[in-house]
Design a protein around this nucleic acid. Structure first.
Lengths: 210, 210, 210, 210
DNA sequence: CATGAATGAGAGTTCATTCAT
DNA sequence: CATGAATGAACTCTCATTCAT
């Protein structure tokens, strides 16, 4: 495999070009959300962005690089949200009661639900591409921030946790959450309340000490 | 959405025709397994099958129909395996001890592992297409046979089960299993023993009475 | 360098497809002759051939392969002509006087003149591409037939030849001929008689015993 | 043919401008040498030159003009070298013996060898473009200086020369030299000693009196 | 029915050139 | 004058689908 270069082509220096990159990524998100991978092509993205194809290729050397940027960004946002949430759990505002494990997990699950359920097609498409594309530094970094956050949470609430937790616990956590959300998104959009309960069930079973 | 016609063109009655269809589906499976969706096209499938493209279109009105047939078939095979397994659990051979819930779940999980882990690329590709394509009668029927098998299993081992199990339990069961298997397949291929344990953990947690 | 595959894609089996290949090569020659490399693109060739681009790519996996086919063909034609000519020189028809070295060389030079002068732009373009493209078996074979013909000629007329002829004599022979023809073609098209004389001069000087 | 404007946009008068032009031409040479015509584009040249594309277009109205400048420059350098060499031959330093025709021709051939062999890709690319582009005054002037130098040399050593030399002798001289050098460059890079001999052979044969 | 040659819309990508800053 | 972001026509190549044989 020659392994395509998916690194962004050049960092936009001027304000104008930064705006262009932003517009392109935004358009790419919209196209992927509406038309899925089948309708996702560089010409369409450029058109939706109100920009020429040339401009797109000025910043992304190829289609894969554009998708990679989208994935990196999503993962980064997730990592940010995770870190922020774990901080809140560890340092609850004064007068606020401490979270139970179930509550903490629920909150974390909500993050993934937010990402996946809001744009199911988008998320599914990205997941699919993730497997195909060479992983970037930025993505790996974000992923590790996510796992680190999880471990912090586990350390904080070790009392309720199983002692023989597999290493892959954090990864499995997200895998399970994503899977249930996707399944749900596939079927008609029902109440999310139910989904909450089911994810909590699965995760608690996975993590808890019996 | 115009909604593509995805039904197979006609039921091949003659023996020769049935053989052709079988050869095509087999070739399609191979191509999908080796080259993933990116390398999956009707010309290539026909070539690998040793058949002309024209013949392919004789039996499948379009590409989507071919993929749909693949999905239907996989689901049917899974349903067959499920039913068979549940029968065995309900009527253990004389002298063989009855299964515990954990053992039953493990056995069921193995079915999915078998399908997914054996051909990760194929399975992932099909999963992705499943979301995009209009669902067929045959697929739905197979899915319901799977769910029915699960319910039979649950009925048989109700003692260990939670009483407030959500309706979607069976669907969730497979979703969780698939998710963990796919995650594992993404990473390097390690021992499957570990995977077994983790899936059992998650499923038991989901299903069991506390 | 990944070195592009320039082998033809598949041998046309049916009559119809053989005709298509012929038409494409003919069109390619015309386009190259009229518009040179700058105007030579697969769409135009297909259009001129009265064929769809798809058909072109059915037989030539890429643009380079098309050009390579053109080069191979030109070289093969040259080799055929050379062999035929040398046979005539070695076995002159009864009653026809034997050739002098000068006459033989002149006749051989005429072959190159014929190829180059008839379509100067075409020839120049091919020469340029020849340097860039990976050499094919067929081309190499034709080239060796040309050199072999030359050596036969040399053997036949060794009396007039220098004894210390360099190995590269045959190659140099064509290089010099081509060069003078091209130079002439660049300037306005004057009488070819003059060109004949000049090439003979140069070649005799190169080959003759003093 | 609309015939492109190929003249440099303006004579750079200020020092800074002259420097910029020099840098651009130098970069163009490098790019052409390394990547050949296929990789030669104005954006890349500008980048290698460390200058903006806009600046490039400030001095060269289009790509063709840039290439033309390169050709003109090479021809001018050749003309300069020729004139200098012929002066040396006509006025040998005191105590130095006079050159024979063979020696003179060898020295002249060396000039072309130097240009062509040092950067074969560059030279071949320029040769190819030369045929395509409208000839400029500067180029023609340089070419005439080359021819004039040759005629001076011929006059100086008329004793050894043929009396019926064609007008195009000087042009042919360079054509032959270039051709042999290019042929050699195409094959592996062997010793140049051999090449020297072969060029001398061909040129002497062309020019000498028998 | 089978064949496989032919089609052509459409996707990815490049690059000469312009122009607002 | 310099910059470099933006443009978009043009080009290479693919692949689902049709249809004459």
């Amino acid at each position: 495999m020659p392994s395509i270069n998916v690194a962004p082509r050049k960092a936009p220096r001027q304000q104008r070009s930064q705006a262009t990159v932003a517009v392109i990524l935004q358009a790419a998100t919209r196209v992927l959300t509406r038309l899925s991978l089948a309708g996702f092509n560089t010409n369409r993205v450029a058109e939706v962005a109100g920009v020429s194809v040339g401009s797109l290729y000025q910043y992304f050397p190829n289609k894969a690089a554009l998708v990679t940027a989208l994935i990196d960004r999503a993962q980064t946002e997730l990592a940010d949200a995770c870190e922020q949430l774990v901080q809140q759990i560890k340092n609850p505002a004064t007068g606020q009661p401490g979270n139970t494990l179930a509550e903490s997990l629920g909150a974390l699950a909500q993050l993934t639900i937010g990402q996946q359920y809001a744009k199911p097609v988008f998320a599914a498409a990205l997941d699919h591409e993730e497997a195909r594309l060479p992983v970037q530094k930025q993505y790996r970094a974000a992923q590790e921030r996510v796992l680190a956050s999880m471990l912090q949470l586990f350390a904080h609430q070790h009392a309720e946790l199983a002692t023989d937790l597999p290493e892959s616990a954090a990864r499995d956590f997200f895998a399970i959450t994503k899977a249930l959300v996707e399944t749900e998104a596939g079927v008609l959009k029902k109440s999310l309340a139910d989904l909450d309960v089911r994810i909590a069930r699965a995760l608690l079973g996975y993590l808890k000490k019996f």
